[in-house]
Design a protein around this nucleic acid. Sequence first.
DNA 1: ACCTGAACACCGTTCAAGT
DNA 2: ACCTGAACACCGTTCAAGT
Lengths: 239, 239
Amino acid sequence: MASTAAGDGSRPGVEGRRPHDPRVVGDAPARLRADAAHNRRALLDAASATFAEEGMDASIARIAARAGIGKGTVFRHFATKQHLVVAIFCDRLDRLADLGAELSTAPDPAAALSEFMTVGVEQQASDRSFCQAATGDTRNDPAVRAASVRLAEVAETLTARARDAGSIRADVTGQDVVLLLGAACQAAAPVAATAPELWRRYLALIFDGLRPQAAHPLPHPAPTRTQLADEAAAAGSAG
Amino acid sequence: MASTAAGDGSRPGVEGRRPHDPRVVGDAPARLRADAAHNRRALLDAASATFAEEGMDASIARIAARAGIGKGTVFRHFATKQHLVVAIFCDRLDRLADLGAELSTAPDPAAALSEFMTVGVEQQASDRSFCQAATGDTRNDPAVRAASVRLAEVAETLTARARDAGSIRADVTGQDVVLLLGAACQAAAPVAATAPELWRRYLALIFDGLRPQAAHPLPHPAPTRTQLADEAAAAGSAG
DNA sequence: ACCTGAACACCGTTCAAGT
DNA sequence: ACCTGAACACCGTTCAAGT
């Protein structure tokens, strides 16, 4: 339905791996032939919509058909289904970070933080694949980690401003805020079909927990900025 | 590793479907032959441990091998992989409900609710399949719905006591409490490998949101007790 | 350089043959 | 009544053949 697109094709470096693979590893936007660029865009659009509707286990065949391309073409653009998921997931994170950056100069810090969180949860709640990707191996991908770090930095700016204004307790970080987006989404997920706006309730409840009025000492320190990177190593050695 | 078991085989009715299938649909514990009962137990133990370690996409072949039985035997006991997941998931829910029932007569209502939530999140945080099951189609299974309803009722008892004692805000229900368990778990999940106890931080943060001190009006009503049942119908017609 | 569908490997599920 | 592994269908991935 929605013609919303994932990515703009400007970061195709990380995914494909073939003998004559034209894609580069840096952020230089490798020039694609016109038909390839068109197919890539159609693929990302189809995948984005299909994953949102059906979750991460939607089949590649369905996505390829929806995009009007052959199955093989999917794997020319993305070495693996996982890489395709990563590209879309990163795009969502980037978009939210962009919004956060805009909001970081808004006049009311508490309202800005609230708006940021609201959009973040809304984005996740309408996408069946988002929570799956956030929990699964997807988060260990380098590109996802990079996008996550940037998102956490933007969130930290928003959080610091709200904290300085006294709207938010002192012991909460931007990383906390980002992680709590998934929390609100997950709480509402089991009843999403009958109460699609329920996430607003749990976001509000969680936001009340961020306020200074009810603050009790937290039993565990906030995750560090590099902990997500360590996470990948830990997962690798554990698997 | 752990010899923890899922279920006690006393509710085998819902899953299997074969020509000479001996299992009944009610709660009468169909008498299994000694070898069948033994295999069933081994299967549940192996599946419980494997799903916890590797998540829901662990292969049936691995589980069967771990249990020391043939692949075919798995499907004699559970018509589908999903049914196996359901059996284990229900058992987790039941165990938590049991704990809640015990805690409902504890002297300190707020401490009892906190203890209930702590054990609930702890259980989920150490099980890679739990969040997946809570988000996926698993929750639409009738047996899961029944277990969820019972869990919500127990939680409501605990919540009502804490509410009456003035420890918890008036607009929060037992259903909310149950859904927020998944929230705390999900928030911590992305960093679980490097900070396995991080969920304590988010549970504490969420619990602070339940206190009356920071309460602001909630923008959405609590889910109703029957909403989970409606959920299954909605999901069915939508798919 | 890029596209494609046939071919391969893997996994959930079925079933005929065993005890 | 129950167990088992070979057989089937499906899906992610590869690759030789096309333009």
